[in-house]
């Protein structure tokens, strides 16, 4: 009976374990997804007669706060993984929970932003600018939400996993981290494109 190799240990040639390889592939496809949407944004904007300045319509201070929240959450994410690397489970738990909390805070701020827009009768159907704004930030928000859900699951099973197979556990956090950094990176693009330009 053969077992699947390299589920935990890195492959001698590629230097990565299966999960890490898989998450990179997944991120490649995500790049194509957001790349296509950014292209759509460019095409629509170039084709439009007039295009509003994002800063005139959107709440830049709130978005700046959100940018800070996400960047901080990326830092705590790295710290949580690094804590596992040095076998400090308690610190991991603190940093990882902070990451989840910061992600939630991001969504709460975002929902206030959305709420204010709806109050002023600005909907996706209002014009092309709002359409692309709601679509891009909405899709990004779903990615944040997905990350939070998975991270919460990982946190809830962390203790038993850590006791059983600490290396596997560390790998999982590394993969979750890669995804989280990507989601952060998307926002770093979205923020200037939608709010500032």
């Amino acid at each position: 009976m053969m077992e699947i190799p390299y589920t935990v240990k890195p492959h001698p040639v590629t230097g990565v374990y299966n999960g890490k390889f898989g998450i990179w592939l997944f991120l490649a496809s995500e790049v194509m997804l957001f790349g296509a949407l950014f292209s759509a944004y460019v095409l629509l904007r170039v084709g439009a007669d007039t295009w509003p300045r994002g800063s005139a319509l959107l709440n830049v201070p709130l978005a700046t706060l959100n940018t800070m929240l996400l960047i901080t959450s990326s830092v705590t994410m790295v710290m949580s993984w690094a804590s596992l690397k040095v076998n400090n489970f308690g610190k991991y738990r603190f940093y990882f929970a902070s990451t989840i909390f910061l992600g939630l805070a991001f969504l709460v701020v975002k929902s206030f932003e959305y709420g204010a827009k709806f109050e002023h009768n600005h909907f996706p159907s209002t014009d092309t600018f709002y359409a692309i704004y709601f679509t891009l930030t909405g899709l990004h928000g779903l990615h944040v939400l997905g990350g939070i859900l998975v991270n919460t699951y990982l946190l809830s099973t962390a203790k038993s996993m850590w006791n059983r197979d600490p290396e596997h556990m560390t790998n999982r956090i590394e993969c979750a981290g890669l995804y989280w950094h990507f989601v952060d990176l998307v926002w770093i693009f979205l923020f200037p494109v939608l709010y500032l330009l």
Binding site: A28, A131, F134
Partner: peptide
């Protein structure tokens, strides 16, 4: 499949927005 399908997914999201939320992509 990995790299070509996501743009269609993007297009599908935009068409869903058009059909369900009244956008005009």
């Amino acid at each position: 499949l990995l790299l070509a399908f996501p743009p269609l997914e993007a297009a599908g999201v935009l068409q869903l927005m058009d059909r369900l939320f009244g956008t005009s992509f």
